[in-house]
């Protein structure tokens, strides 16, 4: 039996659920799959600032569920995650500025700067990895080809670009034609599907269409559900929030 220290810091760069309310013609764009992917990326990041509150529930195959709540603030390439509950990790914060990341723990009054090399590490017992949470734009990392299509959806098959350091060599995306949104993401490694992300509960909040629920299911049975509790678009967030000083001060 071996227990080892793992990467327990958390970079919860939440996959952006908010989508610019610009309709896309998926069928037309799918003629140029890379173009479709770029268009989807663009829809995800068309705001000055974004702020969400999430509840994450980890549902193991055996044993009890665990839930956490956290806020996420995003502005440009900067992102701050601050845990609200449970009490043991309340106040724990993760600041991401480009490729630099800080983790602050009020419990030990300590800030550590960390590198983003361990992207396949699961976050706090969930089956979301850093890579899953942090990757915002897929087009710069993957080459897209069109897969099977139906009346209501089309599959995009993404293979990692040679120069990319993306964590997953292959992804499969199912694009919902009606909403022009990604509704399923399959994660493939070494020729095997490792896990699947389903996005459900379509809604429009503050004029922005979005999915309220994301469920990540591993082949081994572990599930993690992310429930979006609130979403605020283009609210002013001062730049100083994204600093080490603010981490320590809880601002």
């Amino acid at each position: 039996m071996r227990l080892s220290v793992l990467l327990f810091f958390t970079l919860l760069s939440i996959p952006t659920l908010v989508l610019a309310d610009t309709p896309l013609d998926v069928d037309a764009l799918s003629q140029t799959p890379q173009g479709l992917l770029e268009a989807l990326d663009k829809r995800h990041n068309a705001y000055d600032s974004q702020k969400w509150t999430f509840e994450m529930t980890v549902i193991p195959v055996s044993g009890s569920k665990r839930s956490m709540k956290f806020d996420v603030m995003q502005k440009g390439s900067k992102r701050l995650v601050r845990f609200l509950s449970p009490g043991d990790v309340k106040g724990m914060s993760v600041l991401s500025k480009g490729r630099t990341m800080y983790v602050y723990a009020p419990q030990t009054e300590n800030v550590r700067r960390v590198a983003t090399s361990a992207r396949r590490q699961n976050l706090l017992g969930s089956n979301f990895t850093y890579a899953d949470m942090a990757t915002v734009n897929l087009a710069p990392e993957y080459n897209a080809t069109v897969g099977a299509a139906a009346d209501d959806h089309v599959w995009l098959e993404l293979n990692k670009k040679a120069e990319s350091d993306a964590a997953w060599p292959k992804l499969r995306l199912r694009i919902n034609k009606k909403h022009a949104l990604i509704e399923v993401v399959e994660y493939w490694d070494a020729g095997k599907k490792v896990k699947t992300q389903h996005r459900t509960n379509f809604t429009v909040v503050g004029g922005a269409p979005t999915w309220k629920t994301i469920t990540m299911s591993s082949e081994g049975g572990l599930k993690t559900r992310l429930e979006m509790l609130s979403q605020k678009i283009n609210e002013p967030i001062p730049n100083k929030v994204f600093s080490k000083r603010s981490l320590v001060r809880g601002q």
Binding site: L3, S4, V5, L6, F8, V58, T108, L123, L124
Partner: peptide, 12 residues
């Protein structure tokens, strides 16, 4: 805090 992080990160 350390215990919580350990438990959440590594079920072992």
């Amino acid at each position: 805090y350390h215990g919580y992080l350990g438990q959440m990160s590594d079920p072992a």
